[in-house]
């Protein structure tokens, strides 16, 4: 694990992907492994430090019944234009290939018009409250409290 002086900086490490869909994502991005609602399934989610909120894939939201949640309704200007949806607090697990997984919560923007297949992890409601590091030479994503 990563150590800062004598202390562990992170608790877990996983491999991340640079390219998720070779055709649709021509430039490198960071896709990490998470599970939602702590189900026994893995999804890829893109780390986006430039985004305030995390965004949940609407198909995943639909499956979990989040599209009908009574959350706080807002409109947001996104890279895909103005979108309307709700903000909801959801549990997220960062899965570890080495070390210990990390359970936390994030505020997600849930919008039925968001393109399917894309979940983003944003800074303000999630990443800002955890430590993380990236090593592109090894494609390693480190995370911890």
């Amino acid at each position: 694990m990563l150590r800062l002086e004598q202390e562990d900086f992170t608790c877990g490490r996983s491999r991340y992907l640079d390219f998720l869909k070779e055709a649709a994502e021509p430039t490198a991005k960071i896709f990490v492994k998470i599970s939602l609602e702590h189900t026994e399934s893995v999804f890829w989610a893109q780390i986006d430090t430039g985004s305030a909120w995390s965004v949940l894939d609407p198909l995943v939201a639909k499956r979990h019944g989040y599209l009908d949640l009574d959350g706080e309704r807002i409109g947001l200007d996104t890279r895909l234009g103005r979108k309307s949806g709700i903000l909801a607090r959801l549990p997220v697990r960062f899965l570890a290939d080495d070390g210990v997984p990390f359970d936390t919560e994030g505020t997600f923007f849930i919008c039925p018009d968001w393109p399917p297949g894309r979940t983003f992890l944003g800074y303000s409601g999630l990443l800002a409250s955890m430590r993380f590091a990236l090593d592109p030479q090894a494609n390693h994503f480190y995370f911890g409290p």
Partner: peptide, 19 residues
């Protein structure tokens, strides 16, 4: 939705593997 998040390492969860 506006409260700061606090996470915790969870040693009870099995590790994932190379995908």
């Amino acid at each position: 939705v506006l409260t700061e998040t606090k996470g915790r390492p969870n040693p009870d969860v099995e590790c994932d593997f190379d995908r």
